[in-house]
């Protein structure tokens, strides 16, 4: 892709991020952090791309290491967020 569209995407995403995140209530700020953390694990895509091209022992180790780090981030982040959110319950007898 050309540079300019990427910069446009970057700037507009920051605005979307701001709009969406400010609507998250304080009650959910910890799950927001762990959940957005999992989303930042999207760098797993980059890790897969470099690992797919590597052809040497050191380069393979390096890129697979990146895959491992990003996978921990993705799997752990989504799972722990789910675990937390499962605990949030509404009161039973709401008058």
């Amino acid at each position: 892709m050309d540079l300019l569209p990427l910069i446009i995407i970057f700037v507009l995403s920051l605005f979307i991020g701001y709009e969406v995140i400010t609507k998250v209530p304080p009650t959910l700020h910890t799950p927001l952090m762990s959940g957005s953390n999992a989303i930042s694990g999207i760098v797993i895509v980059g890790a897969i791309i470099i690992a797919s091209n590597s052809n040497g022992i050191i380069s393979t180790i390096l890129s697979v290491f990146a895959v491992i780090l990003a996978t921990i981030n993705v799997v752990g982040g989504f799972m722990v967020t789910d675990r937390m959110l499962a605990m949030f319950k509404k009161s039973k007898n709401k008058e």
């Binding site: 892709m1 569209p5 990427l6 995407i9 970057f10 995403s13 920051l14 979307i16 991020g17 701001y18 969406v20 995140i21 400010t22 700020h29 927001l32 952090m33 957005s36 953390n37 989303i39 930042s40 999207i42 760098v43 895509v45 980059g46 791309i49």
Partner: peptide, 23 residues
């Protein structure tokens, strides 16, 4: 994402960047 010219990295990265800054 800019290194790899990959839009999904740029979008997701900036969402998280904005979130962290707001918090």
């Amino acid at each position: 994402g800019f290194v790899l010219n990959n839009p999904v990295l740029i979008i997701s990265g900036s969402l998280v960047g904005a979130s962290g800054l707001i918090l």
